[in-house]
Design a protein around this nucleic acid. Structure first.
Lengths: 125, 125
DNA sequence: CCTTATGTTCAACGTTTATTGAACTATTGC
DNA sequence: GCAATAGTTCAATAAACGTTGAACATAAGG
């Protein structure tokens, strides 16, 4: 396992890549859950998203989200903690992330954003 | 040529589809140009986008933009006039379209949004 | 009616994408 | 050291995507 995964600089973040990244239902769910979690701890680890898809499939989506500059990964022991790159995204594309997240929240049931994710269960306790 | 192409109702417009639609550079350019044109006439016809790609390729992208609910097509003679479905998009995803368009405007040169499009030339006269 | 202009539709193609399971790496705790 | 845990990487697969040119459809102008 390489120590710190590749992240693009703020200026390297491209609009089409971000939009494409967010257009996938699984990745949109991940981003949505990360946004919800910001009110609590701002970070989640990969395992919190088991239930959304298989581990290798999730790793694929995590890599995409990272490489597109949407989220950042921090390695801690055997865990990888992830958070949204809110400031960078806001600097590059003002209002975009919130518009997407709010739209996703509005359509939460339609998008099935809440299904199969440990995070929501934990939060509702 | 069928008289009126298919358009989804406002409620049928889905977030992932819209994001995916906007993630393609050619389609993003079309949307951006339509947005710019709103200050003038709010409508453009297919031919205004020759230069972006071949005709059949453009027809493919137009169809996607239409089927995803991003724009509306009106048939007039041999022409098809298109405009953004601003109100519908705003109702479904508040702030999203403007965030995307403003972000695209900020990155206009990086995205090469202005190249090969008749509209800009016409507008700069 | 014939031609021209505007776009669409279709089939073909090569590329990219999402998904899967198996193998692998790295860290923690006993 | 050994087993368990947490994730990644790889190869394979099927589906979706973008692009192309040729054929088609429709309307307008002479």
């Amino acid at each position: 396992m390489s120590r710190t995964p590749l992240h693009p600089t703020r200026e390297q973040i491209e609009l089409p890549m971000v939009l494409d990244c967010l257009s996938d239902p699984i990745r949109l769910t991940i981003v949505y859950q990360l946004a919800q979690q910001e009110r609590v701890s701002s970070e989640l680890c990969c395992g919190d998203f088991n239930g959304l898809a298989g581990k290798s499939n999730l790793a694929y989506h995590f890599a995409k989200l990272r490489e597109c500059g949407v989220m950042q990964t921090r390695v801690a022991g055997t865990n990888r903690f992830m958070r949204l790159r809110r400031e960078d995204l806001e600097a590059r594309f003002p209002g975009l992330l919130d518009a997407v997240i709010n739209s996703a929240a509005k359509d939460a049931d339609r998008l099935q954003l809440l299904s199969g994710c440990d995070v929501v269960d934990a939060e509702s306790n």
